[in-house]
Amino acid sequence: MKITPRFFPSLLITIALSFLAPMAILGLLLTLSTAVSLCSGVAIELLTESLANILKVFGNGRIWEGILVIAITCGFVGGIFETFNFYYYQNTH
């Protein structure tokens, strides 16, 4: 089976976007919840601490390392899906 030149740029773009999306979403969510907790009550602070605890679990005690682990995993899965889609489309058409 011949790999077309269109596959690698598409794969790299998919991996990059799959990596950057969770980093941006989790970073913004953590930043916004921290900023809102400075202004308002306890409920948002509990949400911020819960999110931080979840990220610490994935990051071996560090929040940003947890975000990085989740982003790398999403990039890997995005690459697998792109590869599957490419080969599936080639075999059906």
Rank of each mutant, 00 (worst) to 15 (best):
R6H: 13
R62I: 14
L32G: 06
T48F: 05
F84K: 05
C39T: 12
C74P: 09
N85R: 08
A35D: 04
T31N: 10
I63D: 04
V57L: 15
F7N: 02
N53C: 09
S40V: 13
I15R: 04
L51W: 03
H93F: 06
G75Y: 03
L20D: 04
L29P: 01
K56A: 02
L26S: 00
H93I: 06
I15T: 08
F19H: 04
S37W: 01
I63Q: 03
W64H: 14
N85M: 07
L12A: 12
V77M: 09
L47I: 14
E65M: 13
V36A: 08
M1R: 15
I25R: 00
T31C: 07
F7Y: 09
C74Y: 11
I70G: 04
P9M: 04
I54K: 09
C74G: 12
R62S: 14
P5V: 13
I25A: 04
C39P: 06
F84T: 06
G61L: 10
N60W: 15
A71N: 05
V57Y: 15
L51G: 08
V77A: 11
Y87G: 05
A35F: 08
V36N: 01
P5K: 14
G27D: 05
L30D: 02
Y87K: 06
I63P: 01
T48R: 07
L17K: 05
I80P: 00
V42F: 14
I80F: 08
I13C: 11
L55E: 03
P9N: 07
I70V: 12
G78R: 00
S18Q: 01
N91Y: 02
I67T: 04
M23G: 05
S37D: 10
A24F: 14
S50G: 15
P22H: 01
S10K: 11
S18W: 01
V57N: 12
T14I: 05
M23F: 13
V77G: 03
